[in-house]
């Protein structure tokens, strides 16, 4: 679509949208938010870019092929489920790893990996759908 307002706004917005989607994603750990809604906003950013500059440009900005995103997402979903099976607990049981760095204490967990998987799947799926419908 050729519109100066849209072009300028999109250039400004895409970074904000991606950042916001990451914010939603990490906030979802303890509060409303999470991989699904974050993924939706992230996919929204690339959809907006596709509307403004065409799908070809948007694919370039995304760098990774959306189907690869889905595949990596699915893989991290399965892996997050399989990890507890190595310590003889049922599939999908939450496992946590606390790392103390002093100032920044980090919580790593299988639910986080699962959520990353959801995020990637949602972004990949929606972008695939929008791009292929747009390119028809």
């Amino acid at each position: 679509m050729k519109s100066l307002i849209l072009h300028t706004a999109t250039r400004l917005m895409i970074g904000v949208l991606v950042l916001f989607s990451l914010f939603l994603f990490f906030r979802g750990h303890d509060e409303p938010g999470g991989g699904f809604i974050g993924g939706l906003v992230g996919a929204g950013a690339f959809t907006l870019y596709a509307i403004a500059f065409g799908t070809e440009a948007s694919r370039k900005v995304l760098r990774v092929h959306p189907i690869t995103l889905i595949a990596i997402g699915l893989l991290s979903l399965v892996v997050s489920g399989l990890i507890p099976m190595f310590v003889a607990e049922p599939f999908l049981t939450g496992k946590w790893l606390f790392i103390e760095w002093g100032a920044f204490d980090t919580k790593l967990s299988t639910p986080l990996l699962f959520d990353i998987g959801v995020y990637l799947c949602v972004v990949g799926f929606i972008v695939t759908v929008i791009f292929s419908l747009e390119e028809e």
């Binding site: 595949a71 893989l75 399965v78 489920g81 399989l82 599939f91």
Partner: peptide, 12 residues
């Protein structure tokens, strides 16, 4: 899980 892993690898 096995078909899911296979499907994922095939997608990759």
């Amino acid at each position: 899980a096995i078909p899911l892993i296979t499907a994922t690898l095939a997608l990759l």
